[in-house]
């Protein structure tokens, strides 16, 4: 027949998953949560800590995946947003004795609101202005963290950050806190999963693929873009609120501009626009170097180089590679 099917691969080939696949994603999340609940038994304090750190990073990467992978926006302040959440939690819990749960909610709210305030003027002009505005914001936040000693402790940071209770159960222990992190990560992942398969997700995909056409169909592109960015930022805030009690000490260095770049690379490495991609990306970015006992900056170089190669060979990242491999194995063309 006449169907010269346009088979060109787009930079981010991820649409709304098919109904069968959706349950697959949810089941994977559930199975992952169960495995991670039991995984650290006998792993020791450090191993458990690395697993928790993986999940916390995954939350921030998940948010950035929404911003970059689904809405196609470059945010260079994900680490700064994480810093906002972490500092807010650290300051309010250590200095004012506020409950961690309140801080967690406030961290999300604050980063969401800041996302709106930054996104509105930038997105009014052009999508790539958001990159520059977030770049500037990232630097500004870093300056404040470093300079306002009375509030943030400057380069010495804030230490002795307490871990929260869970209905009276103390979560001081690495394993217990890890399980707490597993539950929160699971909840946040499911919320995102729900959002992506709701009409919102369809609108996000549409505005990434063709914003002008989307607008002509009534999609308020400005609102959706802003929401994607603000929600993505809020995830960083949540991640920060968990990061502070996990590490029990924070200083400005993990929230610098380089770290924001690093988080973006994790999104791409895992597969931007894939719901499970962030977990793979954070695994490669955070867990692997710990297990391989790689020196920090050397690993960064290797990681960045791998991401560049991935971008050339398979812009869909590891998730895309796996999908291709699966298609090969089952003998199906990479059609869907």
């Amino acid at each position: 027949m006449t169907a010269p099917a346009t088979r060109e691969t787009l930079p981010q080939t991820r649409s709304l998953p098919l109904p069968g696949f959706i349950d697959g994603t949810l089941l994977t999340l559930l199975a992952g949560a169960v495995i991670l609940w039991f995984a650290p038994v006998g792993m020791g304090r450090y191993g458990t800590y690395v697993l928790s750190l993986w999940l916390v990073t995954s939350i921030a990467v998940m948010g950035l995946n929404l911003t970059l992978g689904y809405a196609g926006l470059k945010s260079l302040a994900q680490a700064a947003f994480m810093g906002l959440g972490a500092y807010l939690t650290a300051i309010l819990t250590t200095k004012y004795g506020v409950s961690w749960y309140v801080c967690f909610a406030l961290s999300g709210l604050l980063t969401f609101a800041v996302g709106l305030v930054l996104g509105f003027p930038a997105l009014r002009v052009k999508a790539h202005y958001l990159a520059f505005v977030t770049l500037a914001f990232s630097t500004l936040i870093w300056l404040i963290m470093r300079n306002e000693q009375w509030l943030t402790g400057g380069v010495f940071g804030i230490s002795n950050i307490n871990r929260p209770d869970f209905f009276g159960i103390k979560l001081f222990n690495a394993l217990e806190f890890h399980r707490f992190v597993v539950v929160i990560t699971f909840i946040l992942a499911v919320v995102l999963w729900w959002m992506i398969r709701s009409p919102w997700g369809r609108a996000f995909t549409a505005l990434r693929e063709n914003p002008i056409r989307a607008a002509s169909l009534g999609v308020d592109t400005r609102l959706y873009t802003l929401l994607a960015f603000a929600i993505g930022s809020a995830y960083a805030g949540f991640a920060g609120a968990l990061y502070a009690p996990l590490v029990e000490f924070i200083d400005p260095s993990p929230f610098s501009l380089s770290q924001s770049f690093f988080l973006l690379l994790m999104v791409v490495a895992g597969g931007s626009g894939y719901l499970l991609g962030p977990f793979i990306g954070a695994l490669l970015g955070v867990v692997l170097p710990e297990w391989l006992r790689f020196a920090g900056s050397l690993y960064l170089i290797i990681f960045a180089a791998i991401v560049m190669l991935l971008l050339i060979a398979c812009p869909q990242g590891m998730s895309g590679l796996m999908e291709r491999a699966y298609a090969k194995l089952t003998g199906k063309g990479a059609g869907r």
């Binding site: 787009l10 930079p11 981010q12 970059l68 196609g72 470059k74 790539h128 990159a131 380089s258 770049f261 690093f262 973006l264 690379l265 791409v268 900056s297 050397l298 960064l300 170089i301 960045a304 180089a305 991401v307 560049m308 971008l311 050339i312 812009p315």
Partner: peptide, 20 residues
């Protein structure tokens, strides 16, 4: 692959240059 992957590649490059 588009402008977005390229922009991200330059971020990767900046990390390589700096850490290198």
């Amino acid at each position: 692959h588009g402008v977005l992957p390229l922009a991200i590649a330059t971020m990767a490059l900046s990390i390589i240059m700096k850490e290198g």
